[in-house]
Every structure is written in C-alpha cells, then in structure tokens.
C-alpha cells in the first residue's frame, strides 16, 4: 500500500478532528494486520470504490466516543445511543470525504459509501489473506485506530 493512501486518510483525520473537536491527532505506531477486527467499542467502516477499492475502519473506545460527542454537543453523553453512533458515523463520513479530496491531488478518483457504524460487536472481516495497515492515532482524549485496506483497480 502506498504512502499516498495512508497520508490522505491521516491528514483528513487530523484536519477534521481539529476543526470539529479542537483536538490534535498524532500518528502512533503502525502495524500490518490480516483482516479487520472490530475490537473496540464503536467501529465505523467506510467502503471505497473507484480507482482504489477497499475499506477503511475506524475503531474507538466507548470513553473516547462519548467524549467526542460531548465536545460537539456540549452536554454529557452516557451511552452510545442512536444520537452518539450517528454523530460518530458522520464524523467518519466527513473524514472520508476529505480523504477523497486529498487523494484527488495524487490523481486517484474515488467514491465513498455511507458509513456503517457497528457498536459492541466483535466481528472480524478478512480479505482472503490480504494484509491491511493499522495506524494507531493518539489524541488528548484517548487513542483510536484506523485500519486501511486499499488496492488499486
């Protein structure tokens, strides 16, 4: 997987979370994983089509999810209800949209499917022995993961 894909998503995540939540995002450790596992409390997947094909999965803990929505809504959230999960899905969707704009600069034209939010379901998705990249992101309100699996069409 090329650095262009990873940087496009990393930069979009950084920009969107800065604008929406006033938090700084730092790239943490990188890992190569086989398949995508919904191993945190709230998971959002985005399907990518076009010049690139694959999926992006964001994994957040419950605490971080609630904190993110609290920052936006200005009120305490105590459970991942429809409001919280929809807000998380929208944030991921906005990140995806910005990432596509960034990819255009590298001449990749892609489209993105509406986000799928999966709460508290520890299912794994495999890609027939293909490997995906796991990037841990660090912020002041906790860490979260982005798993990127993209291939060129």
């Amino acid at each position: 997987m090329k650095a262009e894909y990873i940087n496009s998503f990393y930069k979009a995540t950084q920009d969107v979370l800065k604008t929406m939540l006033d938090i700084e995002v730092e790239k943490g450790k990188l890992d190569v994983v086989e398949g995508m596992i919904n191993s945190k409390d709230a998971n959002v997947s985005l399907g990518v089509t076009g010049d690139l094909k694959g999926s992006i999965l964001f994994r957040f803990t419950k605490a971080m999810t609630l904190e993110m929505v609290k920052i936006m809504a200005g009120m305490e959230m105590d459970e991942i209800d429809v409001f919280v999960s929809s807000a998380l899905g929208e944030v991921a969707n906005i990140i995806g949209g910005n990432a596509l704009t960034n990819l255009t600069a590298y001449e990749y034209v892609c489209d993105i499917a509406p986000p799928q939010v999966i709460v508290g379901d520890y299912k794994s998705l495999s890609f027939a022995n293909e490997k995906a990249l796991l990037v841990t992101m660090n912020t002041d309100i906790g860490e979260f993961d982005i798993i990127i699996y993209l291939t060129e069409n």
Binding site: T19, M20, D81, V82, F83, A87, I94
Partner: peptide
C-alpha cells in the same frame, strides 16, 4: 436522534470550515 446528529456535525463542519 439521527437527524439531530447530522445537523450538529454538518453545522460545526460547515461553519467551521
């Protein structure tokens, strides 16, 4: 709840950027 979340995220991002 779904609409509320969309309005909130859209407004923050649209006005903020």
């Amino acid at each position: 709840q779904e609409l509320c979340a969309k309005l909130m995220t859209w407004l923050i991002m649209h006005v903020g950027k």
